[in-house]
Amino acid sequence: METFTSWRTWDEARVDLAELPVDLPAVEKAAVAAQRWHGDQQRPTGVPYVEHLLEALEVLVRGRGVTSTELLAAVLLHDVVEDTEATTGDVEAEFGPVVAELVDWVTKPPTAGAGRQQKRAAKAAYLRRLGEAPPEAVLVKLADRVSNVQRLYQIAPDKQRSYYAETVTYILPLAAADPWFARWYGEWRERFAHLR
């Protein structure tokens, strides 16, 4: 199972992207905005949040072979509305309606003040709704989840089994329509089969 952890900083990503047919200034603009909005946020593992965004970018570029400016910008910005003060309007103002729509599709609805069961129900509804999303938004979500699950063993042991089940239930059906993602998630499923 291939992992995507080569790009820890934008400078590292830029070197590889410069050799590809991508609009590097436009993608860099998204990377800079993501860094600005996420600031000093960290992942639960303690690494800078930007590393997750760069992993998802690497999945699309090096794994799936995506060069679309809108898709690459959206994958870098996919968590800004959910996890920062940025709004969908902010994203649209800087990156246009296509990127804003993709980010909106992959943004979980707010659940502040909701109980545990309400939060779980809202997340399940959000994941089911992705089945209606445009294919480009699905690619963003699939890349995001690859970053999240490629090292599933790094999350808290009590959450590994539920995250595995959630991925198998909701994400694998989305991946089935795309040969590259279907293969990757198939290998991932076998790698972590002990969590069934």
Rank of each mutant, 00 (worst) to 15 (best):
residue 116 R to W: 02
residue 117 Q to P: 02
residue 117 Q to G: 11
residue 120 R to I: 12
residue 120 R to S: 13
residue 121 A to N: 10
residue 122 A to N: 10
residue 122 A to T: 13
residue 122 A to I: 04
residue 122 A to D: 09
residue 123 K to W: 00
residue 123 K to T: 12
residue 123 K to V: 12
residue 124 A to L: 08
residue 124 A to I: 06
residue 125 A to M: 04
residue 126 Y to G: 03
residue 126 Y to C: 07
residue 126 Y to V: 08
residue 128 R to N: 08
residue 128 R to S: 07
residue 131 G to C: 06
residue 131 G to L: 04
residue 131 G to S: 08
residue 132 E to N: 07
residue 134 P to G: 09
residue 135 P to I: 04
residue 135 P to G: 12
residue 135 P to A: 11
residue 135 P to W: 01
residue 136 E to I: 03
residue 136 E to Y: 05
residue 137 A to E: 05
residue 137 A to L: 08
residue 137 A to T: 05
residue 138 V to E: 03
residue 138 V to I: 12
residue 138 V to D: 01
residue 138 V to H: 02
residue 139 L to F: 00
residue 140 V to C: 10
residue 140 V to T: 06
residue 140 V to F: 04
residue 141 K to F: 10
residue 141 K to N: 07
residue 141 K to D: 04
residue 142 L to I: 07
residue 142 L to R: 05
residue 142 L to P: 08
residue 143 A to R: 08
residue 144 D to E: 13
residue 144 D to P: 05
residue 145 R to A: 03
residue 145 R to S: 07
residue 146 V to E: 03
residue 147 S to D: 04
residue 147 S to Q: 04
residue 148 N to P: 01
residue 149 V to D: 01
residue 149 V to S: 00
residue 150 Q to M: 09
residue 153 Y to N: 13
residue 153 Y to P: 02
residue 153 Y to E: 11
residue 154 Q to G: 03
residue 154 Q to I: 10
residue 155 I to D: 09
residue 155 I to C: 11
residue 156 A to Q: 13
residue 156 A to F: 04
residue 157 P to E: 14
residue 159 K to R: 14
residue 160 Q to I: 10
residue 160 Q to S: 12
residue 162 S to P: 06
residue 162 S to A: 13
residue 163 Y to F: 13
residue 163 Y to C: 04
residue 163 Y to A: 09
residue 163 Y to L: 14
residue 164 Y to D: 04
residue 164 Y to N: 10
residue 164 Y to P: 01
residue 165 A to K: 14
residue 165 A to R: 15
residue 167 T to D: 15
residue 167 T to M: 14
residue 168 V to W: 13
residue 168 V to Y: 12
residue 169 T to H: 15
residue 169 T to D: 15
residue 169 T to M: 14
